[in-house]
Amino acid sequence: MATLDFIHISIADQRLYGFADGRLLLRLPVSTALNGVGEQNGSGCTPRGRHQVRAKIGAGLPLAAVLRGRRWTGEIWSAALAEAFPGRDWILTRILWLSGCEPGRNRMGNVDTFRRYIYLHGTPDTEPMGKPLSHGCIRLRNVDIEQLFPQVPVNCALVIDEAPCPDWAAIPLD
């Protein structure tokens, strides 16, 4: 399993593209914010621009482990648990916590991605992928975030933008 050195999130495609040494190695469906793109604190939008993975949380947890406040609650997501807590924004399995790299755009002040708690994280399998529905984070299938997690080092470069799939992303995976 290769270590990724760059991740591109396409809002238009609702896809994550993972690269190592300039080669496309991973293509996963995601769900970004229902409110669209934006950087303001409290907007519920997915922030754009250059980011890095600042922290990795949840190594070794079971699939569908429920995380609140970046800590495992001891629960595993189930339909019964979801029924008991309707409307909860479920953060499951693993967290890749993002930090903006562009002061004034997605770092510091009212546009700070890290202070907004923007993550890549797992979500219930009942939630659709490929459709913007999150509260600002980038949601992935639990099996996908579990696969992605060990391939992403802390400080891995990540770009979130509105551009559709560039030509290189249509290339078959290595």
Rank of each mutant, 00 (worst) to 15 (best):
G42E: 12
L34E: 01
G49Y: 09
I57N: 10
K56P: 14
S43T: 05
R54F: 15
E39H: 03
Q40Y: 03
L61Q: 14
K56R: 15
Q40M: 02
V53D: 10
K56Q: 15
G49D: 13
S43D: 13
L63I: 09
C45P: 07
V37G: 09
T46C: 12
L63N: 11
V37N: 07
N41Q: 12
R50N: 04
Q52W: 09
G49C: 10
L34C: 00
K56E: 13
C45M: 12
N35V: 02
A55F: 06
A59H: 06
G38S: 07
G38E: 12
P47V: 04
A64R: 12
G38D: 13
G36A: 00
A59E: 15
P62D: 09
N35K: 05
G36V: 00
S43N: 08
V53T: 11
C45D: 06
A55C: 04
A59C: 02
I57Y: 09
G58P: 14
V53W: 01
A59I: 02
C45K: 14
G36C: 01
L63S: 13
G58R: 05
R50G: 03
R50F: 01
I57F: 08
G60D: 14
T46V: 08
R54H: 15
G42N: 07
A59T: 06
L34H: 01
K56V: 09
G38M: 08
P47S: 05
Q40A: 03
N35H: 12
G36Q: 00
N41F: 03
Q52K: 12
L34S: 01
V37R: 05
L34K: 00
A64H: 15
V37I: 12
S43F: 05
N41A: 11
C45I: 02
G42D: 13
K56M: 13
R48D: 13
Q40W: 04
G42H: 06
G42T: 05
L61M: 10
Q52S: 13
L63Q: 14
G58L: 09
T46Y: 11
P62W: 04
A55K: 10
Q40L: 03
R48V: 13
A55L: 10
H51M: 07
K56Y: 12
A59W: 03
I57D: 13
G49T: 06
Q52A: 12
N35S: 11
R50Y: 01
A55E: 15
H51K: 02
G49A: 06
T46R: 06
N41K: 03
Q52D: 14
I57M: 08
T46K: 06
L63D: 15
A59L: 03
A64T: 12
C45S: 13
P62A: 05
L34G: 00
G44C: 08
G44M: 06
I57T: 10
I57G: 11
I57K: 04
G42F: 08
P47N: 05
G60V: 08
G36R: 00
G36I: 01
G49I: 06
N35D: 10
N41S: 10
R50A: 07
V37Y: 10
N35I: 00
A55D: 15
R48I: 11
G44F: 08
L61C: 10
S43M: 04
V37E: 14
E39N: 04
P62K: 03
L61E: 15
N41E: 14
R54M: 13
V37Q: 11
